[in-house]
Simulated scan of single mutants.
Amino acid sequence: MKIALMDSGNGLLAAAAAVHRLRPDADLVLSSDPDGMPWGPRTTEGIIERALACARAAAAHQPQALIVACNTASVHALEAIRAELEPGLPVIGTVPAIKPAASGGGPIAVWATPATTGSPYQRGLIRDFASGVEVTEVPCPGLADAVQRADADAVEIAVKAAAAATPRGVRAVVLGCTHYELVAERIRAALQDPAAPPLELYGSADAVAAQALRRVGVPPVPDAEPSGSLTVLFSGREGELDAPSLTYPEGRSLLPVGASRP
């Protein structure tokens, strides 16, 4: 079994690690786009162009499913990717976990990139899945870029700024960018009130990993032999996990996958 994941950068690591936890025997293909990132400031047409190129590079390795592990690409390019690759290749998009977060009541906050915050897409999710729940949209300028570079100081600055814009007393925070899941505990530490119940953080990695297995038609086997291979693509060029990716536990968890590659 082979599962491919794509993103502009290393935001795909959280979902890749989730797939690896569920199926340590799965071959993984990680397709990112350092030549074209960041995708967020691009026009919709530009995002579609770069995302399609990233998806095609992954599809060339003949996976059984492709996870679009990027909120920006899922908003703007998912339809185009599916139109080109399905039904032959199941394509799983990433949706901010507003529905499960809101199911427990409010107040909640949605941390997202400035381009996504306040967008019709995100407002639509809030309208459809969080009606009657107090929701605050929090833009996080610079956070995804800082995570991509594994710049700890820049991450701290961006997290503190977003935390200051988050109302006190929120019960849960939706991580509306896949990069944010790599620094989830830093976000929790910045927001947690010692006198309050534990803050709940809602990412998408586990859900998209489980959905990918469902689309392939295989069950989770977390105790399977870790025998999968790892292919890493940078704008279509094969390489190895880079140093910033390996600063995160999610990236390091994939090293046994690569070690088993023939």
Rank of each mutant, 00 (worst) to 15 (best):
S31G: 02
T178A: 03
A83L: 10
S204D: 04
E238D: 06
G106Q: 03
A207S: 15
A190W: 05
A58C: 12
T166Q: 08
T117Q: 10
D33W: 02
I81G: 04
P167Q: 11
P107A: 05
A164L: 11
Y121A: 09
L255N: 00
S245C: 09
Q122H: 08
E86C: 08
P249G: 08
S74I: 02
L78G: 06
G9N: 08
D145M: 08
P120Q: 07
T247G: 00
L89M: 14
A18C: 08
T44I: 12
G104V: 07
L230H: 04
A165T: 05
P38D: 07
P63G: 04
A243F: 01
N10Q: 10
P114K: 08
E49C: 03
A259I: 02
L246A: 02
H76A: 14
L85G: 09
T247A: 15
K99Q: 02
A60P: 00
T94M: 04
A184C: 05
E185P: 00
D35M: 08
E185F: 00
G104K: 07
L22V: 13
L254Q: 10
I157F: 09
R168S: 13
S74E: 02
E240K: 09
N71Y: 05
T72K: 02
E238K: 11
V208N: 05
L52H: 03
E86D: 08
P24K: 11
A4G: 04
G142V: 04
D145T: 13
S32I: 11
L89Y: 13
R42M: 14
G228M: 11
L246F: 01
Y121K: 06
L254V: 12
S229A: 14
V170F: 05
E134D: 15
A154T: 03
P226Y: 12
C70F: 03
L182P: 06
S119K: 06
S32N: 14
D151H: 00
L233P: 04
C177A: 09
A53H: 13
L254D: 09
A57D: 14
L233T: 03
L5M: 09
I126K: 07
P256F: 01
V91E: 01
A73K: 01
S229G: 13
S8C: 06
A17H: 11
V133N: 01
D25I: 09
G40E: 07
E86F: 10
D27S: 12
F234H: 15
V95W: 01
A144N: 02
E79G: 15
V133L: 01
